[in-house]
Computed example of a mutant assay.
Amino acid sequence: MTRKPGTMTRRRLHQINVWAQLAVLAPMGALLVVIESGTWWEAVVLSAGVLAGLVAIARWPASGLSRVAIPCLIVSAAVWLYGVLVSGDMTAFCGIAIVGSITIPHLPRHRGIAAVGLTVFVAAAGATRLMVPQDDLARVLTSYVLVPAGVVVLSTGFMFINKLFYDLIAELQESRDREAELAVTRERMRFASDLHDIQGHTLHVVKLKSALAEKLVRTDAARAQEELREINALVGDTIAQTKALAYAQRRLNLSAELENAKNLFEAAGIRVHVEREAEVDAHAGELLGQVLRETTTNILRHAQAGQVRITLSKAGITIVNDGVHEAAPHRLSGLATLRDRMATNGGELTVQQKDGRFLTAAAFPHGRSAAAL
């Protein structure tokens, strides 16, 4: 099974951390065993405590930590009690300090209570040294109670911070994964919108021209034949545009869209007036071309327009048509999608309906101006 890059990154960080700790603690543990052991039996017991700590560290990045946590805690706790009551080894608490500090932050709940319980146990176990006759009470309290308890608190606190660090890395990676998923979703929506622009527009135009050709076939065969040739050319152009879209090569030409819209409106018997006050840059022209194409399709589908006025200015484009019913307007999902796209690119798309007329205005902040209704 393929791992996500974020999961692999966290795993590598865990492994680096583990090897860094093992590289420091393993030699130190071995040195303490050699220094503190008076007999081979003491060496075996102290080695068991060190080994328990090293096993917990080694299993820390893996999901199997919970399987070894309890045995390691039992062994390291027994080693600490042995060091307090039998051998008098003040460093025997190191094993339980390591195992406890690694295990507690990964508990599903009651981690604070567990941390307090571990500290109390280490201190209480160290206090049992008082049952052994000693000359220096202060030394016992310091060496067997305060120092071990303090080390446990510090090491556990450090591991809590360590866990927060890895949790933060996980959250950042999840955030990046979500951003990637959103980017993919946005790209799919963009592709679907562009495909709708191409296919939907073409199908409505083909429907219009085929109906016109059907009417002319008996009265004006030459004109009907011309309409059929245009339908064939339009379908071929749509196939080419769909292929270009699939390979991310599609670009709309605003001038071509203006001419196409003008021809379509005239073919539908709609008077059209085009004013070109200024030219816009290529990127803005592509977006404005999409707005013009979608608006043209909407007018042909939803309005009984008699005239259309198209104004191209430095700020953007404005399309006004009549023949709009005063009833609730149709839900123009294509324009809603284009409004979001315009906003993403720093533009603004305005749609208004008033007195039987419909206005669609796409503009950019650097020179926005829209014709009034």
Rank of each mutant, 00 (worst) to 15 (best):
3 R>N: 15
5 P>S: 13
6 G>V: 14
6 G>H: 15
7 T>G: 11
7 T>L: 12
10 R>A: 13
13 L>E: 02
15 Q>H: 12
21 Q>C: 11
22 L>C: 09
24 V>P: 03
26 A>R: 03
29 G>V: 02
29 G>A: 00
32 L>G: 04
38 G>H: 12
42 E>A: 01
43 A>G: 12
47 S>V: 03
49 G>S: 06
53 G>H: 02
54 L>P: 03
56 A>M: 10
56 A>D: 08
65 L>Q: 11
87 S>E: 06
94 C>Y: 14
95 G>S: 05
95 G>E: 04
100 G>E: 05
101 S>P: 03
102 I>K: 07
113 I>N: 13
114 A>I: 11
117 G>D: 09
119 T>K: 08
121 F>P: 02
125 A>S: 05
135 D>P: 08
140 V>W: 00
141 L>Q: 07
147 V>M: 12
148 P>K: 04
149 A>Q: 05
154 L>Q: 06
155 S>Y: 12
157 G>L: 08
157 G>T: 07
167 D>G: 05
171 E>L: 14
175 S>L: 12
177 D>H: 12
182 L>I: 00
182 L>W: 08
189 M>P: 00
191 F>C: 06
192 A>D: 14
194 D>M: 11
200 G>D: 09
201 H>L: 10
203 L>R: 09
210 S>M: 14
214 E>N: 14
225 Q>F: 13
234 L>V: 01
240 A>W: 01
242 T>V: 10
244 A>W: 09
244 A>N: 04
247 Y>S: 13
252 L>D: 15
257 E>F: 03
258 L>P: 02
262 K>S: 14
266 E>S: 12
268 A>Q: 10
277 E>N: 07
281 D>I: 08
284 A>P: 00
289 G>K: 01
289 G>H: 01
290 Q>D: 07
291 V>F: 00
296 T>D: 06
301 R>Q: 10
302 H>L: 05
304 Q>R: 11
312 L>D: 01
315 A>L: 02
319 I>P: 09
322 D>L: 05
328 A>G: 08
332 L>N: 15
336 A>P: 00
338 L>Y: 04
342 M>G: 03
348 E>T: 14
349 L>D: 06
352 Q>C: 07
355 D>V: 03
357 R>G: 02
357 R>Q: 07
358 F>P: 01
361 A>T: 08
362 A>V: 06
363 A>P: 00
367 G>L: 06
